[in-house]
């Protein structure tokens, strides 16, 4: 087990280097000249542009810039952005709230998705199953920003049940509506995944055996059906944590949450390569960590899976 864990952690190194190199190349190849755009419609004289380029090492060749970035990563000194702010501060300001939002969304989609999916799968073809299927189809079909604006206008502005925006120091309550909106689409997928998986396992041999042994219905459902059905769901949820963090741009915009999405968008538009790559690198690391966690969870869910 430990050996497996160590090996997996070592794999993080090439993934990290490859991902950052690729990201850096992508932002480097982005056309246009962000320095000239700093002057707005007027642009800036060449001499001023050269000065600014030198200040941010933008006059260096690609590989040198990339190596300087790596040095920044290992010394935890990412430098400053065009606004003169420490990039580390920018990241420290953006990640906590996004992480909280993503975890809330993940919890909502896991609890309600698995719960509804289990009931629907157990009573496949019933009225509950039918209505849940239609609802999930609807949620998948409607884009997130529509759900977001409708929820904001309806539940926030008109009814006043939730804060319209998350505000400057978002607490659990003010993040609740954004989290529901953010988790809505994944909730529908989790529900459908669980439902199919449960329905399939219900007719498996070991379930029939468990029933024949005379186990209580709740034990059959909980220990045998649900546990085995969760493997595909957990795989999905693990990958989804990264998606929720990176994909919160739209939701964060609608509810004015100052997280990773808005910061990343700004940095891309301004052409601040170091900020873009730094933020994205953290997202890559979250992906890697979540996947590792999922792989370890497999062993807990399915006794047949063992890591040596």
């Amino acid at each position: 087990m430990l050996w497996y864990l160590g090996r997996r952690l070592l794999q993080v190194i090439p993934v990290f280097l490859g991902a950052t190199l690729l990201l850096y190349a992508l932002v480097f190849l982005r056309p246009g000249d962000p320095v000239n755009a700093l002057g707005g419609e007027r642009g800036l004289p060449e001499a001023v542009q050269d000065e600014i380029r030198a200040r941010y090492n933008l006059d260096q060749p690609f590989l040198v810039q990339y190596l300087l970035f790596l040095r920044g990563v290992f010394t935890l000194d990412f430098g400053v952005d065009f606004r003169g702010r420490e990039i580390l501060d920018v990241m420290a300001g953006a990640f906590p709230v996004t992480f909280q939002l993503a975890l809330m969304a993940l919890a909502i989609e896991a609890i309600f998705g698995v719960g509804f999916g289990l009931v629907a799968g157990m009573r496949k073809g019933g009225w509950f199953d039918g209505s849940v299927l239609v609802m999930s189809l609807f949620v998948i079909a409607v884009p997130t920003f529509v759900i977001g604006f409708v929820a904001q206008l309806g539940l926030g502005v008109r009814l006043g049940w939730f804060p319209v925006t998350a505000g400057r120091d978002p607490d659990f309550y003010s993040l609740l509506m954004p989290a529901i909106v953010l988790g809505a689409v994944s909730f529908a997928y989790v529900l459908r995944l669980t439902r199919t998986s449960v329905a399939e396992n219900l007719s498996a041999d070991y379930v029939r055996t468990a029933r024949a042994k005379g186990l209580q219905r709740s034990q059959v459902t909980g220990r045998h059906v649900l546990r085995n059905s969760l493997i595909p769901v957990v795989t999905f949820l693990g990958a989804d944590l990264g998606n929720l963090m990176a994909g919160a741009i739209v939701t964060e915009g609608i509810f004015n949450i100052n997280g990773v999405g808005g910061t990343l968008y700004d940095a891309i538009v301004r052409g601040e390569n170091v900020t873009v790559v730094s933020l994205t690198t953290v997202l890559v690391l979250v992906y890697i960590a979540a996947n590792l966690l999922v792989d370890l969870l497999y062993a807990a869910l399915d006794p047949r899976i063992r890591y040596a």
């Binding site: 604006f149 904001q152 206008l153 926030g156 502005v157 006043g160 804060p163 319209v164 925006t165 505000g167 400057r168 964060e252 915009g253 609608i254 509810f255 004015n256 100052n258 808005g262 968008y265 700004d266």
Partner: peptide, 18 residues
């Protein structure tokens, strides 16, 4: 001076009294 990333959101906040 409250930072908004989306003008639609700011407008809704005005309507909502925030």
């Amino acid at each position: 001076l409250v930072v908004y990333t989306d003008e639609d959101t700011a407008y809704n906040d005005l309507l909502g009294g925030n």
